[in-house]
Design a protein around this nucleic acid. Structure first.
Lengths: 256, 256
DNA sequence: CGGAAACTCCTTACGTTGTATAGTGCTTCC
DNA sequence: GGAAGCACTATACAACGTAAGGAGTTTCCG
């Protein structure tokens, strides 16, 4: 199940995301900060994936009980929203550039690297009804680049949506490919290859195009899946940027 | 957590997916077929989303216990794989077309409609280490179109990956937008708007591009989010197809 | 032909997870 | 100084996937 975000009370979630929760006037103070809770959760996710982020695990990481976390966040889902926005803070702010194509590529590359650094992001729903400040900034950066490119305001939502989607899809592929590098996973992939041959002995006949692609990718040398994933990323962005260039009138280093 | 697929024994999963499981020679016969199990699970998912597909719910839908399902599938994950491939059977086979651009768009439109008909598909991991026959056929269809377009074999993986991603992203947006149409959800969105204004009173100042986009989209009239999602889909595909055209040399109705 | 093996299906149980609820102790308000 | 509000803990519950064992059924094979 993709982790759904932004559910429940939007006011509370947004106040947390945007740092508008004030310190209560009565009662004992929090012994640790919400930032520390989020950081602990991110550590756990980075180490074991999103499924490792249980309230018990996070509480334990902080020397507390699961239930104490509910004095910081409304639910596990809200914690995940906060984690998501917090790692977006790692994205570099976009630099002004006359060459919008380069700027788009740089933006995409940065986002891809973020996904590779925190693969659990890909397991969080891509539906974003509630954005935090860092994620909003990432979107704004991209929109600024597209404005510089001279893309019409009507076209910008589609462009951002497409770019986000392509990067996310390519990052997913890259994460899986890197995961296939270990010995254990390599064995799994070998077994899968054999199983497919058994299950579909007429595969090559039925799917000649897919077969040709697989053969071509085997020529990429060592770690073909990793190379293929990297290539898919760069080419995908190239295609999309080429397409956007057809609708933009801003300056670019070259039409290409 | 995005539902991970293809884990565990690949041989068993692939045999199930490709219909290569033979009837046992001993013991009582299955009283219902695996196809009925899958169909029951799809019904439940269509009605309540992927999270509603519990082994108990599926068993109950069939007048059986949860544990009896394990004589059909190895795990819930495998059941989800089977569900996924089964609905891909609904995709129309691609028709030969001299106009590859139209063919790509038709392909994308069909896939988007599939996602809209079965939104739970979007909650299944986009990482596809194990493909069933119908999903493989969908990929093959697209590859055939791209071959017709004269796209190089090296470029085809990136093109398919990008198209899948863009359709998936746009479908997600469309599903969310349609979900916002009900009265209850509309209230949620109104509350979210107010909460954001409270959390970030300087939003327009910090994010002028995003603010301009939101204002422009409000001009779309009734159900702006639905219209915006539809528009994002068609424009995204247009951009990508335009970009692909830069690298393809096959026939198209017009360069545009 | 009959016992054994394989198989379907059920029952019970277990470990895990998110979170409800009540209680205790602490801080500030009025 | 008592009440209200708050941090944190302990306990409990519902729900979930699935392990394990048992009962009944079908086919194999000596």
């Amino acid at each position: 199940m993709t982790e759904r975000i932004g559910q429940g009370d939007p006011a509370r979630t947004l106040a947390l995301l945007w740092g508008k929760v004030s310190t209560p006037k009565r009662g004992p103070r929090h012994a640790i900060s919400a930032t520390e809770v989020i950081a602990a959760a991110v550590r756990i996710a980075d180490a074991g994936g999103l499924e490792a982020v249980t309230m018990r695990a996070v509480g334990n990481e902080l020397g507390r009980t699961a239930m104490s976390l509910y004095t910081y966040v409304l639910s596990r889902d809200v914690l995940i929203d906060l984690m998501y926005d917090s790692v977006y803070a790692d994205l570099p702010r976009s630099q002004n550039s006359k060459d919008w194509r380069k700027a788009v590529k740089r933006w995409c590359t940065s986002l891809r690297e973020l996904y590779l650094a925190h693969p659990w992001l890909l397991d969080v729903s891509s539906a974003r009804p509630v954005l935090g400040p860092h994620e909003q900034e990432a979107l704004e950066s991209l929109l600024r680049i597209l404005a510089t490119a001279g893309l019409s305001i009507q076209d910008r939502p589609a462009a951002t949506s497409a770019l986000f989607s392509v990067v996310r899809g390519a990052a997913r592929q890259a994460v899986e490919a890197r995961g296939a590098v270990t010995e254990e996973d390599a064995e799994w992939w070998a077994a899968r290859g054999k199983a497919l041959a058994d299950a579909a002995p007429d595969f090559a006949e039925r799917f000649p195009e897919s077969t040709a692609i697989a053969a071509q990718q085997r020529k990429l040398g060592a770690q073909p899946w990793v190379k293929a994933a990297d290539q898919a990323f760069t080419r995908s962005i190239e295609f999309l940027v080429d397409g956007l260039a057809r609708h933009a009138d801003g300056p670019s280093a070259a039409v290409r």
